[in-house]
C-alpha cells in the first residue's frame, strides 16, 4: 500500500518536473528579442511544411465530414419535416465543435508527429549539438520558426475546415437531396452568430494550436537520442496532444457557454 502511494507520489513529482522543464523551454522559445527580418524566411518555409502540407488531409476530411453530417442530419430532420434547417445544423456543429476539434486532432497526427520526429532525429544525429557548437541557438533557429508556424497554421486550417464541410453538406443537401438552396443558406445565415459561433471556434483552435505545437516541439527536443526514443516521442506527442485537445475543448466550451 505504502509502496503504491510512493509510486503515485514519484509519478506526480516527475510530472511536475516535466511540466516545469517544458514551461521553461516554452518561455525560452517565446520570450526573446524578435528578429523579424531573419525569422520571416524560416517562418515561411515552416508554414509551408507544417500548414500547407496538412491542407490536403484537412480538406478531404472536412468534405467527407460535411457530407456525412448532411446525410445523417437530413434523415433525422426529415422526421420532423424540417429538412430546410439542415444548413443551420451543420454550420453550428462544425463551427462550434467539429471544426476546431477535428482539425486539431488531424493536425496533431499529421504535423505534430512529423515535427517531433524531425527534431528528435536532429537531436539523435547531433545536429542540434553541432549547431550549439557553432554558437547558434537551436531554440531560435529550429524551434521558434516551427512553433510560430504551427501557431499560425492551425486557426487558418480550422477556418478552411469549416468552409469546406459546410460546402460538403450543401452538396449533399441541396444538390443531391433537393433542399431549396435559398432556404438552406438563409437559415444558416440567420442561425450562425459571428462572435458566439465562429469567433469562439477560432479561439478554441488558437488554444489547441498552441498546446499541440508546444507538446510536439518539447517531445522532439527532449527525445532520448535513439531510434526507439524517436518512436516513443512521436507516439507521446500524438497521445498527449489528442488528450489535451479533447480536455481543453471541454473546459473552453464550459467557459464559453457559461461566461460569454
Amino acid at each position: 500500500m505504502i509502496k503504491y502511494i510512493a509510486q503515485l507520489g514519484a509519478g506526480g513529482i516527475s510530472f511536475c518536473q516535466r511540466l516545469g522543464v517544458s514551461g521553461i523551454f516554452l518561455f525560452r522559445v517565446i520570450c526573446r528579442r524578435p528578429r523579424v527580418l531573419r525569422l520571416t524566411p524560416l517562418l515561411c518555409e515552416q508554414i509551408y511544411v507544417v500548414g500547407v502540407l496538412s491542407l490536403l488531409i484537412v480538406v478531404i476530411s472536412a468534405l467527407f465530414i460535411g457530407m456525412v453530417l448532411g446525410l445523417q442530419g437530413y434523415n433525422v430532420l426529415e422526421k420532423f419535416g424540417s429538412t430546410q434547417e439542415l444548413g443551420q445544423l451543420v454550420a453550428l456543429s462544425v463551427t462550434r465543435e467539429l471544426g476546431p476539434v477535428i482539425t486539431a486532432l488531424l493536425f496533431a497526427g499529421r504535423a505534430g508527429s512529423a515535427l517531433t520526429a524531425e527534431i528528435g532525429l536532429m537531436q539523435t544525429t547531433e545536429q542540434i549539438a553541432s549547431m550549439e557548437m557553432m554558437a547558434v541557438d537551436p531554440l531560435w533557429r529550429i524551434i521558434a520558426p516551427r512553433f510560430w508556424a504551427g501557431f499560425i497554421s492551425l486557426p487558418v486550417l480550422t477556418v478552411i475546415f469549416m468552409l469546406v464541410s459546410v460546402w460538403g453538406s450543401y452538396l449533399i443537401g441541396v444538390d443531391w437531396l433537393g433542399i431549396d438552396p435559398g432556404q438552406f443558406l438563409s437559415n444558416m445565415q440567420a442561425a450562425v452568430d459571428f462572435r458566439i459561433d465562429i469567433l469562439n471556434g477560432v479561439i478554441k483552435s488558437i488554444v489547441f494550436g498552441f498546446v499541440i505545437i508546444w507538446i510536439a516541439v518539447y517531445h522532439g527536443y527532449y527525445t532520448v537520442p535513439t531510434a526507439e526514443g524517436i518512436g516513443r516521442a512521436t507516439t507521446k506527442t500524438v497521445v498527449y496532444a489528442s488528450l489535451a485537445v479533447l480536455g481543453l475543448d471541454f473546459i473552453l466550451t464550459a467557459v464559453m457557454l457559461g461566461g460569454w
Binding site: L121, M122, T125, E126, Q127, A129, S130, M131, M133
Partner: peptide
C-alpha cells in the same frame, strides 16, 4: 570549432 565523430551535418 568542433568536428563531431559522425559529422553531424544538417540533413
Amino acid at each position: 570549432g568542433m568536428l563531431f565523430q559522425n559529422g553531424a551535418l544538417f540533413t
